[in-house]
Design a protein around this nucleic acid. Structure first.
Lengths: 208, 208
DNA sequence: TTGCATACTGTTCATTTGTACAGTATATTT
DNA sequence: AAATATACTGTACAAATGAACAGTATGCAA
């Protein structure tokens, strides 16, 4: 059964406290947070939430709340992370996330990267150096067919996927590198560019 | 100061319970687990462990134990990720991962970041711009008291945690910024620098 | 020896905390 | 209108819990 609005608020609070403080709140801490005059109110809510299967209470124990599911809060039901494919090079004429293109899988924090249709692209070269994107980085990309003016996009250029800033001019599109050593690329029309998606994040692991 | 054998056993138990039950044990639960006849024994151990900076107690509160260090990075239940604390600013005189410093928790891919004793530090300013570290990035740091020559370290400067390249000279240490707009910082001796750890990765989420 | 830190036992107390009992109010459903 | 679920207040109690005070014992360093 679905939680009521109030129950959901309380559930969110419990999850938040579990995440940030490392332990669930007490009945009275819940009551205090929501301004309840009686701890009993919070307790009864917990009873109902437990009946609906979202928590398990440990009778008599302090902070005896175990979170069973995250319901519709920012934390997803099936865990705290999402898996996205890591794409190395993209073979011509294949979909981005085609099996032959996938180098591996990486797990991302669900609170950080909430979108659907994400994938990671291994960055080659330093053409975007000035915006802090380095060779070897993993760029997190949200799949979409077009991007807005000024956004950084993953695009197919010369049968290879690269990151470029997407600048829309009156009659053409400029694929701008963020590094003075690289020339901008002029493209006739927006339709002539194969946009893979929009840059939403960067993951980098240093060589150790 | 290092923990004694018994203190380490108790510390391990606390970490284990935090991992498995999602909450720290009570004083009496510790005493029971180790067969102590008096809860006071466990309590005194906690006092000593706190003095050594490995936990922070919340006076008077049930299960008021916060794990600060010595913790193996908790592996999430799904086994694919590890949770590390995200530190914003570091209050003077407090351990890095003290409760009051923690801004939240982020989950990292375990295959990418395998180390123990990791934490994430919110980057302020663009002093490391030239190596692709931008304002607002989350720097993944491995806790260690010293770093090798040329490595990028998180160090305490002016009561604030910052990233700098650690260059060892014959008679001094240079904290080098990777941005021509910033001056290098000369420090008398290696012992005069408070090193928090070594940079092992960068996580960035774009503003959407 | 004399301290000192560690590692315990035993008892007691005040606070924290979960829980129970007794109500009120407001919707929604039957 | 009656029944039901939700959302609260108010009081009270017993168990859980952290903390204090008073001890004992052991190993180790000054």
């Amino acid at each position: 059964m679905k939680l009521t609005k109030q129950q959901q608020k309380i559930m969110d609070f419990i999850i938040d406290r579990q995440d940030k403080a490392g332990m669930p709140p007490t009945v009275r801490e819940i009551a205090e947070h929501f301004g309840f005059k009686s701890p009993n109110n919070a307790r009864q809510h917990l009873e109902l939430i437990e009946k609906k299967g979202c928590i398990k209470r440990d009778p008599g124990k302090a902070r005896g709340i175990h979170i069973l599911c995250g319901a519709s809060s920012p934390v997803a039901k099936d865990g705290r992370t999402i898996s996205v494919p890591l794409v190395g090079t993209i073979a011509a004429g294949t979909p981005v996330t085609a099996v032959e293109n996938i180098e591996g899988t990486i797990n991302l924090d669900r609170d950080l990267f909430r979108s659907n249709g994400l994938f990671a692209l291994r960055v080659k070269g330093d053409s975007m150096k000035d915006v802090g994107i380095m060779n070897g980085d993993m760029a997190v990309i949200k799949q979409q067919a077009s991007v807005d003016d000024g956004e950084i996009a993953a695009v197919m250029v010369d049968e290879e996927a690269t990151l470029k800033r997407f600048v829309k001019k009156q009659k053409c599109v400029i694929l701008k590198a963020e590094n003075p050593a690289y020339k901008d690329l002029m493209v006739g029309s927006e339709r002539d560019v194969s946009v893979l998606g929009k840059l939403v994040g960067i993951i980098r692991r240093m060589a150790i």
